[in-house]
Every structure is written in C-alpha cells, then in structure tokens.
C-alpha cells in the first residue's frame, strides 16, 4: 500500500487554497519546512508571515489578522500549537470565536526519536476543552487534503493535527469527509472500533484479522473529536454495544474520553480505550512507541475479544 505523511497532504492543499483565496494566510514559526508550508511561503510570500521561534505571539497575530478578514493558518508542531500557545488560543481565538486555524504537525508520538519533549500526546484533549473549538485529525493523505479544505471553509476556530511519518493511503480522491460526521469504513455487528488519525489504518487491519475469526467489526474514522458525532456513537451503543477506541494520544480527554462521555450519559454500552496510558513517551522508532502503548493490530484484536 502506498504511504504518504498527512503533513504532505496539508502542504499540498494549503498551497492550492492560497492560490484560490488571497485572504488565506500562513503564519509560520520557523518550522515551515517540516510542517510543509515552505512551498506556500515561496509561492505566496505576500500571504505568509514568519514570526520565528515565538509561538505565543503567532496566536495573537493570527487573531488580529482574523479581525481584519484574513483566514490565518498558524502552523507549528502540535506540542507548541496546543500547549505553548494555549492561553493565547483560548483568550484571543476561541473566546471571540475568530476564524483562525491552528495546525499542529508532528502530532502524537510521531516525532518519535525526538522524545517526550516533542511528542504531543495531550494536544487534542487540551483543545477539546476550549469552548468554540473544533478538533480534527485526518487519517491519511487524502483525508488531510479534504479536511484541510473543510477547515478553511469552516467559519470559526479549528485545530487540525497532522503527523510526521508516512502512513498508508486508505482513501482515494473521491472520499467525502464532513467536519463533525464520523466516516464509516466498514460496517459490522459484533464490535465497533472507533479510531482517528494514524490509528485508523491499524483499526482497519485489526478488523480484517477479526473477520478471520468470524468477529464482525464496524470501523469508524472519527476524524472530528469535537464536535463529536454523537449519533454515530449512539448507533454503536444501541446496535453493537461494545466499543474499542484507538488513538495516538493520552487516553485522558481525547477520542476515548469523548466516546466514554456519550456512553456514560447513555447508561449502556461498554468501552475499552486504547491509547497512551497517562504517561510520557521516550525516544524510540514510531512503530515501537505505538507497540509499547498497545496501539497495534494485536492490541485491538485482543481488546475486541476480551471486552
């Protein structure tokens, strides 16, 4: 299967968007090359600001520009986008509901060899907690392109998370993804696997393994964790009852928690969360880090059988 990093999908789409809409601006913070906005900066220098290594101010600048009708994309690593800029995002972007897009590249454990300092395992949870914020993670190259465009067209603040490594391309150019709507990859009735981002392809593979043992799994790509597609989760609760959530994120306040909130309020259904169990990462290959945390085909299969 072909492999491309989601950050590349973002880089290509933002370049196209910059040409189509002159109000789209990129605010880089010295890592445009690795976040894939370097080409945008070269092609449309009049639509790009590079603030250097100063993320807090990047958030404020974006807010100011948005009040003047621009559609700023603040581009940095997920760890800085969510935590370094956090209060500025809250005060100047989320609270006034300004049309700013926050792009977190190198999300989750994907900056693997860099170690815990660069691994953003809390980002989606932190941003999910902010009122008015939309939080998204695309599952492959095509999803990255489609959801980048959707985010640009969405009115209001949004956080979109990409990752570093090449991952399998599971969709094609015809895939239709809507913010706030789960995308069902396959239906099933024994267990539901709800995943997002890089873990969706792992979930698909796990479903194939389960099928060999006559366990039928529904696989949902929950690319938007806020606003969560509550109806899709309720449907899993009512018609399947058993849910496995999979994410490259701490199991606290990310996808798993969001699903659990629905299940708890519904008063029925069972959930097993797979993700980073409330601890920091370390330097290691990405696949190893996922394995250490049980974010694997085997981990999902075992959870599906034991739930």
């Amino acid at each position: 299967m072909k492999k491309i990093a989601t950050r590349n999908g973002f880089g290509e789409e933002i370049l196209a968007l910059g040409k189509e809409n002159k109000n789209i601006v990129v605010i880089n913070a010295d890592i445009g090359k690795s976040c894939k906005t370097y080409e945008f900066a070269q092609a449309y220098p009049e639509q790009e600001i590079n603030v250097g290594i100063a993320e807090q101010n990047a958030a404020g600048i974006a807010a100011g520009m948005a009040t003047c009708g621009k559609i700023p994309f603040v581009v940095t690593y997920a760890i800085f986008a969510s935590l370094r800029m956090c209060e500025m995002v809250r005060q100047e972007i989320a609270y006034p509901k300004l049309n700013v897009k926050i792009v977190g590249s190198h999300g989750g454990l994907s900056p693997a060899r860099d170690g815990a300092s660069h691994q953003a395992i809390e980002d989606m949870g932190v941003l999910r907690t902010l009122p008015n914020m939309t939080v998204i993670m695309p599952a492959d190259y095509w999803a990255a392109k489609k959801l980048t465009r959707a985010v640009a067209e969405h009115k209001g603040p949004a956080y979109i998370r990409f990752t570093r490594d090449s991952i399998p391309v599971i969709y094609d150019e015809n895939v239709e993804l809507e913010i706030g709507k789960a995308h069902m990859i396959q239906d099933g009735n024994d267990v539901a696997i709800i995943a997002n981002g890089d873990t969706v392809c792992i979930a698909v593979e796990a479903a194939q393994e389960l099928a060999k043992e006559n366990i039928s799994a529904r696989v949902l790509d929950m690319h938007t964790i806020k606003p969560l597609d509550v109806d899709a989760v309720v449907d899993c609760i009512e018609n399947i009852g058993k849910i496995i959530t999979v994410e490259d994120h701490t199991i606290i306040n990310g996808l798993g928690s969001a699903v659990c909130e629905v299940v708890a309020e519904r008063g029925k259904g069972k959930v097993k969360r797979i993700g980073v169990p409330d601890k920091y990462g370390e330097s290691a290959p990405y696949e190893r880090l996922l394995a250490i945390n049980g974010i694997t085909v085997e981990g999902i299969v075992a959870a599906a059988k034991n739930i």
Binding site: Q56, I61, A63, G64, C68, P72, E87, Q91
Partner: peptide, 19 residues
C-alpha cells in the same frame, strides 16, 4: 479584540497592522 490577560494585546495589534 478581547483583552484582560496581560501581554497579549500587542501581538493582536501587530496582526491587525500586518493585515
């Protein structure tokens, strides 16, 4: 622009001036 958390307004003003 909303303010109140100190230190943030200048960046917002810079963003407006750039736009």
């Amino acid at each position: 622009i909303p303010t109140g958390s100190l230190g943030q307004g200048v960046a917002c003003a810079v963003g407006m001036a750039i736009a």
